[in-house]
Design a protein around this nucleic acid. Structure first.
Lengths: 336, 336
DNA sequence: TAAACCTGTGTAAGCGCTTACAAACGCGTT
DNA sequence: AACGCGTTTGTAAGCGCTTACACAGGTTTA
């Protein structure tokens, strides 16, 4: 049962297809009689405009494509929320896709989006995201989130992960910790690297104030945090503070601590990164470096919407926004 | 900088637009020479097919529209995950939209989706969702998730919430509880009502085994669970077990308990519903009625994909899948 | 050697819509 | 009565793509 088309409506109302179009779109150069006749016919036929055709004719889809590494989970869900809120404020719709960390999949997704969206909002935190640039269409406005996809973008919004790493160390030292360990995210992730670099830089600067330091590698997953913490606890010298590359690994670390019969923060202080919703719920409540994940999404879309509003898509000096993480001290790191 | 079109590619390769199309789509009735010439031209021009135009011409978008009350949060995020996984398995893309509980918004979203998707996956747990039916296009395959949108759907997948409510009571009684309270979801939500009905029915059947019972109303939000639990604790007779309409309210209830210096499960057993990821992380770990939320999404999409594969979209006897909740006993309800 | 085939290719008609353009009409003016 | 004007309408040309159909060659067959 194919849906009615504008042509059907026009015929039903006995007017030309052009008049039908005008009436439906509420243009003012239509006689009242015609308008009501068309509207009634449309209702009678359950006519719903064909968005695709309209988009093709108008060269405007009112849709933006959102490409994330994944489209679920605490972190991405928050991004989506921010994007969603901003999108509805701008009257835009969302075509979302997950790249699953695979650049080929990302390419496929971009393919599929091409011609269905007015602009792209992309997050690709992979170190080698440069290649990503090749996949992206040059002709579309593009805003990147926490990515290092080269230029060509109409804007970008990133997090100052390096500063966050330093803040973590400073805070831990201020709590009297002297044996700091870091559980890093995957080396393929640019954000993870920056956080680690911040940690290492601050540790080096702290010099004699610290007795010991170490780095274990995780993959941003809860389990990897658990395993890494286990390794840390099994070693000769134990840390009295652990800074993890993100919150989920911190949660895993907390479980490992509990398993070992140890307590945070008394035995080992734990500090996460991101401040995903779950951070408040774990026991003890997780201290973390809060990234306005929601803001990341919201402002990202705002940037893109601004670029779209530009007359011919003129670049107008690509905007770059950098968000600073903010230290949120809850229980897991509070020693003094 | 408009992107290159097929016409441009055809001209560049000096062939007809039809041949260009064939070459690009890998049809086999193209001479090798032509094919490579076209492919090279396409690469040179950074040609990316215009998905919208292709969809219009083929009357197939390979995209399905996902309409949820919200597109973020623990619960919906899980649904999205299920849908996403299934969608990629079927080679389908996702156009998502949140209705925010507003039927008008839902209408707008459906409008926007019309002509951009091959089918609709809709979740609208509102009691008055009947009206929703009016907004939906008759011409599209439709699968509903946990909704009571009338018929016309090619399929539906729902949760046996009533049974879940009964299971909750049975379990609590088995733990030796005799004063049962229920914190219900919003009355406008059909699922919430069914869970409550299950609770009340089981309570009635338990008869003399129970000394007391009560129902407080919440709104599925964490805060409302907190407030409801406070009210419960302030009353003359206190429950020794609370069953909440969903997990987030249980989390709130747990906080209220802690605030009052009470312990779960010793003082009051707490039992949630859904088993969202967070349930494992709270203290004490939350017992709950597990709904395969992920499965809800995955099977929903599978159903839809099956309907799409149908020759002319023939209904082929709409499938209805009912998922039974499963009791997951963690710490918050374990008294014996 | 003509009829019967393939194979590649181009022409053109859509898909459902918007929108320039021109035609048609009713007016008030001179 | 001829003119200009503003309003309403229809015609038709796209938007970028697919695909039925026709057609030109080169092979086979009888």
């Amino acid at each position: 049962m194919r849906g009615a088309t504008l042509k059907d409506v026009a015929k039903e109302a006995d007017v030309s297809i052009a008049s039908a179009s005008r009436a439906i779109n509420g243009l003012d150069n239509v006689a009242e009689g015609v308008r009501t006749r068309v509207l009634e016919a449309a209702a009678r036929l359950h006519y719903i405009p064909h968005g695709g055709a309209r988009a093709l004719a108008m060269n405007r889809t009112n849709t933006i494509g959102l490409l994330l590494p994944d489209i679920h989970g605490e972190f991405f869900s928050e991004i989506i929320r921010g994007v969603d809120v901003a999108a509805r404020a701008h009257g835009l719709h969302l075509l979302v896709s997950g790249s699953h960390g695979d650049i080929r999949e990302a390419g496929v997704a971009v393919m599929a989006m091409s011609g269905r969206v007015d602009g792209l909002l992309v997050m690709s935190p992979f170190v080698d995201s440069q290649d990503m640039g090749a996949v992206l269409p040059v002709s579309l406005p593009l805003v990147t989130i926490a990515s290092r996809i080269g230029d060509g973008a109409s804007g970008s919004i990133t997090v100052d992960n390096f500063a966050g790493g330093r803040m973590a160390v400073d805070h831990l030292i201020s709590q009297g910790c002297t044996r700091l360990a870091h559980i890093s995210g995957p080396a393929t992730n640019h954000e993870a690297r920056e956080r680690q670099r911040g940690f290492e830089t601050a540790v080096a600067e702290a010099g004699a104030k610290l007795a010991w330091s170490a780095v274990e590698t995780g993959d941003f997953g809860e389990d990897s945090g658990f395993e890494a913490m286990r390794r840390l606890l099994a070693a000769d010298v134990r840390p009295d503070a652990v800074f993890t590359g993100n919150d989920m690994m911190a949660v895993g670390a907390l479980f490992a601590l509990k398993e070992a019969g140890l307590k945070a923060p008394d035995d080992v202080a734990v500090l996460g990164f991101d401040d995903v919703p779950i951070a408040r719920f774990v026991q003890p409540a997780l201290s973390t470096l809060k990234v306005g994940v929601y803001e990341l999404g919201r402002q990202g879309l705002d940037l893109l919407a601004k670029a779209l509003a530009q007359p011919n898509g003129a670049p107008s000096a690509a905007q770059r926004i950098i968000i600073s993480p903010e230290l949120v001290i809850r229980e897991s790191s509070k020693k003094v």
